[in-house]
Design a protein around this nucleic acid. Structure first.
Lengths: 137, 137
DNA sequence: AAAACTAAAGAATAATAATTATCTTTACAT
DNA sequence: ATGTAAAGATAATTATTATTCTTTAGTTTT
């Protein structure tokens, strides 16, 4: 996983820096689709001089280079997801919790549906489900 | 349509004001899931003294009272949709265009799928598809 | 029906929060 | 040693929310 991360950066001509490593590790540790702010707070404990702008810049770079995905949330903040394979999201109706939902059978079902039912004047690149509801933890 | 609008406001004990009418009409006219800012610019031409805060407040009131839906966008701005029945969205990969996609058969297909495949510890309220791709206009 | 009352709504403005831009400094790679 | 990418600090922007004060619409009272 860490291997992929370093190699992907290098493959795109990007340097592997301590900050980038720290940001990527923070996202993996934080787990619940952290927002930039969560990442900043987390990193500040071990790496107190990291700059806010750097974090945003690095996150953008990661997204551009397919190390991360951006996830839309109800609120006007972006959240980040290190899970790269094609998957959907469960949004809690009451909290900010977001979980991944991966389901190959469902993807096929939907893929087949749209093979039969083309949308006129539209070429589909990607389909994501936003499943809103309630967790019973 | 306009009837519904006025009545829904009244049913919820809300007043029908010129500003509210103007905002609602703007959304219907603007059509492409306008952001608050689009609405403000549009209204300013006929209604130059409307206040930014009022527009945001009224939009919230409309959402709370089910006259509008909020739509998540790629960027960190909210957009508004006067289309109330259950539907999905087509997102253009290259522009900010968002279109509605309504498809009862698809809703049933997905609904049935999840009847058979419950998600553990999660009660589904609503499922929305974000279909990203390219329009060929 | 007109005047007075009340509460909701609007305007203006300031405040906040997330993000982006700019400019300088640092660090690594040739 | 030099060039370039990245990081740091800080300021600026942008979208949105909150605050305060005024206006308006609808209701009640005379």
């Amino acid at each position: 996983m860490n291997k992929d991360f370093r190699e992907k950066l290098k493959d795109n001509g990007l340097k592997v820096t301590p900050q980038r490593v720290a940001i990527f590790e923070a996202i993996l540790k934080l787990d619940n689709h952290p927002a930039a702010d969560d990442i900043i707070s987390f990193i500040k404990t071990n790496h107190p001089n990291i700059s806010v702008g750097t974090v945003y810049k690095v996150l953008d770079i990661f997204v551009e280079n397919n190390l991360l995905k951006k996830v839309k949330s109800e609120k006007d903040i972006m959240r980040y997801d290190p899970h790269l394979s094609n998957h959907h999201h469960l949004y809690c109706a009451e909290t900010e919790r977001i979980e991944d939902y991966e389901d190959q059978e469902l993807n096929e079902l939907i893929g087949n549906y749209f093979k039969k039912h083309k949308i006129k004047n539209f070429k589909i690149h990607d389909i994501k489900l936003q499943i809103t509801g309630k967790f019973n933890t």
